[in-house]
Nucleic acid binder design. Structure first.
Lengths: 343, 343
DNA sequence: GCTGGCACTCATGCTCAGCGAGTGCCAAGT
DNA sequence: ACTTGGCACTCGCTGAGCATGAGTGCCAGC
């Protein structure tokens, strides 16, 4: 009983099951793949695969269905990411080129990804934590209120309003503000957000004692904005794919929808995905730590410009999923969105 | 056959059906409401109601179910918005008080509304069109690129990057920029967005011919930002309620999810809702112009501070819905969120 | 105009048998 | 030591047949 053929059988089962969504039997398998052996042999192999926990039969006298472990083996050893056609690639590029701003890039990306994969697409907003400060601006609002605006190189903007004891409407106040603006920008612009927070820390001491509390308030609000996890926003699209006919689990759609609403869960999914060494990470069924997502798989990867990987994106769908194609789409979209963001 | 009693029967049918989600028959009706008449009488009334198109029987020998028209009559004439208890009111207020910024207010509101009504909650972002300009700021990005930042009194920020032929890194460039900043702010701050766009129109002429093209570019980008429909963003929560057991239509969830993803559709729903004179508008089943939402009802209203009604919010659920309570929740949440935003 | 009574209609749920896909195992072949 | 054809067996699925009962429509009487 050759190990090799047994794996070929597993591969065939996964492929057929993904396509037909029906348990696949020995006979049906022979018709669709020329394995060069008889049905009985295939049956023996299947029995062995079942023994190993790679496939399972929903009930006696039904075909076999891959288990999570079976999909895992398939993804790891039996498939390769399906390359995309030049036509597809250029369609992706073109669609993303049309974006007018960051929000639009994100919106287009999720829509694109969900329609490519016909699955739920999830995308994390470009994370501030690895981005850098482009500019910091102050906008007086009345005599004693000051709006602090932080502009990040990804195009994201954070703002905070603080109360101050200084009167900023006087010429003197304006001058102070100009000085603060200059110094703060000098020490923060170009730095990564985390580093910027650190280097602002000691800044108040460089000012006249009279101005220090103003500067301290400003620095405090900036630190707040710098570590603010707002960028950990997540956008999704293609939820209706969950209800698509042909999908296995329109029964248990509820828990999945619930999980999708808890953005923290999604962020964690995308986050842990990024920890893996592979370019595209796949998390199958029960590998997934969240109840409600136990019969779904997550295919995710990180994106971002060059060495500056900033966030994650991916898709979520039933474990019965066309992994090679899905992985290809996720990878391609991540590549192109990274390219766009680099500009 | 008294008209009055017939309507009482309709009311009873709606109430029972909403509660049990099963077609209600004459007998069951008598058990749960003391109408003071016999089953046969109720049957006669039911026949009449069916004749009028207010109720329908899924099949012979099943109970009756309200039609869209039946619900409509119920909402218009047979029910009153159920007042909320002080405890509920204060819970709502308290939950919304905790919000830290505009995004948080919106996020909390939808979550609150969906959990109160156990339905899908939809909320439009506070609209810019009725808001006013608080400040306009320019941030040079390199020698020939300029970021224009528009800050609106709702706390929302819009930014645009433009290319210019001026060299802004010189002292002279900075001076020009300062002048432009001052003039533009002088003429736009405090104005409603639409008015601001108009008053900026003629501004370039007030500048030296050499600076006019810069000013024109700035004005153009501002006009773009001012009319930008970004604020027409919509946020939803509680999608998983669609899959809740006990809901009628987990069958046709797909089209509904699709409609929910098309934010344009939702905006239109909220928009038309605001046209009605009633405080809370109800759109039942087929009254709804969108395919896919033909078996859902939308309960919506507008919110905003004082006379400055800025946007819409509401919930979407099956036509078989507890209208009085839902309407009460929508109204209460709208009231409180308006109050919060007024601050 | 209300009521009780009665015949009628169907959806629902049940059992039961037949079908067929699919399996497991065995004995024979290579 | 594998592979193969054969064969008995399992069991989900389907559809027919039947009983049940909720619910109706109608009618005659109050």
């Amino acid at each position: 009983m050759s190990e090799e053929r047994r794996l070929a059988v597993l591969r065939a089962i996964v492929q057929d099951y993904v396509e037909t969504s029906e348990p696949v039997g020995s006979k049906a398998l022979l018709e669709r793949h020329h394995l060069g052996v008889s049905a009985a042999t295939v049956r023996n192999d299947m029995a062995a695969l079942e023994e190993e926990g790679l496939i399972a039969a929903p009930h006696t006298s039904a075909g076999r269905v891959p288990t999570d472990a079976g999909y895992r083996l398939f993804v790891d050893r039996l498939s390769s990411v399906k390359p995309m056609s030049p036509a597809e690639r250029s369609a992706i590029a073109q669609f993303l080129e049309g974006a007018v701003d960051l929000d639009d890039v994100v919106a287009r990306t999720v829509r694109l990804l969900s329609s490519l994969t016909r699955q739920v697409a999830v995308m994390q907003y470009p994370s501030l934590t690895r981005s850098s400060v482009r500019h910091i601006e102050f906008v007086p609002m009345g005599a004693t209120r000051l709006m602090v605006v932080l502009i990040v190189n990804t195009g994201r903007v954070e703002q905070r309003v603080i109360e101050t004891t200084h009167d900023l409407s006087t010429t003197e106040g304006e001058a102070t503000l100009g000085l603060v603006r200059a110094k703060i920008n000098a020490s923060a612009v170009g730095q990564r957000l985390v580093d910027a927070a650190a280097s602002l820390e000691s800044l108040p001491e460089e000012f006249e004692p009279a101005d220090r509390d103003l500067v301290r308030a400003v620095v405090r609000s900036l630190e707040d904005a710098l570590v603010e996890e707002r960028e950990e926003r997540v956008v999704l699209a293609g939820t209706s794919n969950l209800a698509r006919v042909g999908t296995d689990f329109p029964l248990s759609i509820g828990p999945v929808l619930e999980a999708l609403e808890q953005h923290v869960v999604l962020l964690k999914l995308l986050g842990t995905a990024r920890e893996t060494s592979d370019a595209v990470s796949v998390r199958i069924g029960h590998e997934n730590p969240f109840a409600g997502l136990q019969s779904t798989s997550v295919v995710a990867t990180e994106y971002g410009s060059g060495s500056d990987l900033v966030a994650g994106l991916g898709v979520l769908g039933p474990t019965r999923m066309d992994y090679p194609t899905t992985m290809a789409s996720v990878r391609a979209v991540a590549t192109y969105v990274s390219r766009i963001l680099a500009q």
